[in-house]
Lab assay of single mutants.
Amino acid sequence: GSVVKEKKEKALIEVRPYVEYYNELKALVSKISSSVNDLEEAIVVLREEEKKASEPFKTDIRILLDFLES
């Protein structure tokens, strides 16, 4: 629970300088966080969101995924 939350919060802070739609990304992460149990599940849902998103938000999600998977 809290470790996953920390990882996601740290990821958002780390990617902030590189993303165009930070507030939207943060809102998406919050929405996903409330419906998943762990980081792996969150990553799966983020990948689905990435497929549906259009640029440049798609790239923002990709940047976040790269950080979460590192």
Rank of each mutant, 00 (worst) to 15 (best):
S54Y: 09
A27W: 05
D38F: 07
I32M: 04
V45P: 03
V15L: 11
E24V: 04
E41W: 04
F67N: 08
E69Q: 11
I13Q: 14
K5D: 14
E9C: 15
K10F: 07
T59N: 14
V19I: 12
V45K: 13
R16A: 14
K51E: 10
E55L: 07
E69A: 11
G1A: 12
E69P: 03
I43L: 12
R16T: 05
R62E: 02
L12D: 02
S30D: 15
R47P: 00
E55I: 07
I63S: 03
R47G: 07
K5R: 11
L64R: 00
A27L: 11
K31T: 12
E49I: 04
E49K: 03
D66P: 01
V45Y: 09
K58G: 04
S35W: 13
A42M: 15
A53K: 03
K5C: 15
Y18T: 14
A27V: 06
I32C: 12
P56K: 05
E20V: 14
E50W: 13
D60E: 02
E48Y: 07
R16N: 10
D66I: 10
A53M: 04
P17H: 13
I32T: 04
E40D: 10
K5P: 06
L12A: 01
K10N: 08
S34V: 09
S30E: 15
K5S: 13
V15T: 03
S2W: 00
L28V: 03
R47M: 10
L12R: 01
I63G: 02
V44Q: 12
E69L: 08
E55R: 03
L68Y: 04
F67G: 02
E69K: 09
S33P: 06
A11F: 05
D60V: 13
I63A: 03
S54N: 10
S34W: 06
K8F: 15
E9S: 05
T59W: 06
I13E: 15
V45S: 12
E41H: 09
D66Y: 14
L39Q: 05
V36R: 04
K58V: 04
R62Q: 10
V29E: 01
Y18F: 15
T59H: 13
K5M: 14
A42K: 03
E24I: 04
S33Q: 05
K31W: 07
E9A: 05
N23L: 14
K31I: 11
I32E: 03
E20I: 13
Y18G: 14
K26W: 07
D38Q: 06
I13Y: 01
R62N: 10
E40S: 10
K7E: 11
I32G: 03
E41I: 05
V15R: 01
N23H: 10
K58E: 01
L65E: 00
L39D: 13
R47C: 07
S34Y: 08
V19R: 00
N23W: 11
L25P: 00
N37Y: 07
E41P: 03
E50G: 08
K26Q: 09
Y21R: 03
V15K: 04
L64G: 00
S2I: 08
L64F: 15
E50I: 08
E69G: 11
E69H: 10
L28D: 00
V44H: 11
V3K: 13
E69R: 10
E48F: 06
F57L: 02
R47I: 11
A11H: 03
V19W: 08
K31G: 09
L28P: 00
A27S: 11
Y18C: 15
E14K: 07
A53I: 04
K5G: 11
K52G: 07
K26D: 10
I32Q: 02
D60A: 11
A11I: 10
P56D: 04
K51D: 12
K7N: 07
E6T: 08
T59S: 13
A27N: 09
Y21G: 05
L12N: 01
A53Q: 08
E6V: 08
V4W: 11
E48M: 08
K8W: 15
L65Q: 01
I32L: 04
L28A: 01
P17R: 10
E6M: 01
S33D: 12
V15Q: 02
P17M: 06
E20K: 14
I63Y: 08
V44S: 12
E55D: 09
V4C: 15
Y22C: 05
A53N: 07
A42S: 07
I32F: 03
K8E: 14
K5I: 13
L28E: 00
L64A: 02
D60W: 12
F67L: 06
P56F: 03
K58C: 04
K8G: 15
E69T: 12
L12V: 02
K5Y: 03
S54Q: 12
L25S: 00
K5L: 13
A53V: 06
F67E: 06
V29P: 00
V15M: 02
E48V: 07
K7Q: 11
K51C: 11
I61W: 01
V4Y: 02
S33E: 10
S54A: 10
S2K: 07
Y22G: 02
Y21I: 02
E24D: 09
R16L: 15
E48P: 00
P17V: 06
Y18R: 15
A53P: 00
L64N: 00
K26V: 15
K31R: 11
L25H: 00
S2Q: 12
A11R: 03
V36M: 05
F57C: 02
K10P: 03
K8Y: 15
E14Q: 07
I32H: 04
D38L: 11
E40C: 08
K26M: 14
L28M: 06
L39N: 05
S35H: 11
Y18M: 15
V45M: 14
E9D: 12
E14R: 04
A42W: 13
V45E: 14
L46S: 00
S2C: 14
V19M: 02
L28F: 02
E9H: 06
G1S: 13
E20A: 06
K52C: 08
D60C: 12
V3A: 12
K5V: 13
R16I: 15
E40F: 10
R47N: 07
K51L: 11
L39T: 09
E55V: 07
Y18E: 14
V45C: 12
V15P: 01
K51Q: 10
T59P: 04
L46C: 02
S33F: 15
L46G: 01
E24W: 04
A27C: 05
Y18V: 14
V19L: 05
E40A: 10
E55W: 06
K10I: 14
L65C: 11
K31N: 12
K10Q: 13
S34E: 14
V44L: 12
I63H: 03
K10T: 10
L25A: 00
L39M: 14
K52A: 11
K10G: 05
I61A: 00
K8V: 15
S70Q: 11
K26N: 11
K52H: 09
A11E: 03
E20W: 03
V15W: 01
I13T: 09
Y18N: 15
E41L: 07
E40W: 09
E41G: 08
S54V: 09
E6Q: 06
V3E: 13
K58I: 03
E50M: 14
E24M: 05
K7G: 07
E48S: 11
S2A: 09
A42T: 13
E41M: 09
E20N: 06
S54C: 12
K31F: 09
R62F: 04
S33G: 07
D38Y: 09
V29F: 14
I13S: 13
T59Y: 04
I13F: 02
I61K: 00
S33W: 15
V29A: 04
S2F: 00
V29I: 09
E20Q: 13
E48W: 08
